[in-house]
C-alpha cells in the first residue's frame, strides 16, 4: 500500500477507531492518543495490510487490543470475566433524569453494560457492521454475538422504558 493509498483508505477510519476506543477506555484524550498509536503501527505495516480481508476490521481489532493493553497497564481493566458478569446494576430513573441529553443517557447505559455486550452493541447498532465483521473484529462466534447483542438491547430498552415511565409519572 502506497502512502497515498494509506491516507485515502486508512486515515478516514480514524473516527470509527476513535468512537470504538472511547467506548472501551471511556476517556476521550486517551482514545485520541491510542488512535494515533494504532495509525502509526498500521503505517509500519502498510506493506502487509493489503493481505487482510477487511482492513477496517483489522484496524478496529488493533484498536481494541491496544485499548485493552492500556486498560491493563493503567490498572483500569476489570478483573472479572465480562462474559460471567451479571447485567448492569439497574440505573434508577432518578439517575437517568440527570441526563437531559438523550445521547448522554444512551451512552451512559451502554457504558454500564458488560464489556463484551458493550463492544458488540457498539459495533452493530452504532457502527452498523454485519455479524461476520463483528466476529472478525472481536474473534467471537456468531452465536455468542447474537446472544450478547440481544441481552444488551433488552437491557437498554428496559432502562429506557423505566426512565420513560418515570418521566410520565413526574409530568
Amino acid at each position: 500500500m502506497t502512502p497515498q493509498q494509506f491516507k485515502e483508505n486508512i486515515l478516514p477510519l480514524k473516527d470509527k477507531m476513535y468512537r470504538f476506543a472511547c467506548r472501551i477506555v471511556e476517556d476521550t484524550e486517551e482514545a485520541q492518543d491510542l488512535v494515533q498509536e494504532v495509525l502509526v503501527r498500521l503505517w509500519d505495516r502498510k506493506g502487509d495490510i493489503v493481505q487482510y480481508k477487511s482492513i477496517e476490521a483489522y484496524a478496529l481489532t488493533m484498536t481494541r487490543n491496544l485499548c485493552i493493553d492500556w486498560l491493563r497497564t493503567s490498572g483500569r481493566l476489570l478483573k472479572e470475566d465480562p462474559a460471567e458478569m451479571d447485567l448492569v446494576d439497574p440505573v434508577t430513573p432518578y439517575d437517568l433524569t440527570e441526563f437531559r441529553d438523550t445521547v448522554s443517557r444512551i451512552n451512559n447505559l451502554i457504558g454500564h453494560l458488560p464489556e463484551q455486550q458493550r463492544e458488540i452493541l457498539h459495533l452493530r447498532d452504532i457502527e452498523g457492521y454485519d455479524f461476520d465483521e463483528i466476529a472478525s473484529i472481536l474473534g467471537l462466534n456468531l452465536n455468542v454475538i447474537r446472544v450478547n447483542l440481544s441481552r444488551a438491547r433488552k437491557k437498554i430498552k428496559e432502562q429506557l422504558v423505566k426512565a420513560h415511565q418515570y418521566d410520565l409519572q413526574r409530568n
Binding site: 473516527d15 488512535v35 502509526v40 445521547v103 443517557r105 444512551i106 451512552n107 452498523g128 430498552k157 420513560h164
Partner: peptide
C-alpha cells in the same frame, strides 16, 4: 423509549475525532 434508543445510536455514530491537527500530529 425505542425512539430515544435509535436516535441516541444515530447521534453517537456521528461523533468525530475533533482535532484539526490530528493528521499533522500523526
Amino acid at each position: 423509549p425505542y425512539a430515544d434508543m435509535f436516535r441516541g445510536f444515530g447521534a453517537m455514530a456521528s461523533v468525530q475525532l475533533e482535532d484539526r491537527h490530528f493528521e499533522k500530529k500523526w
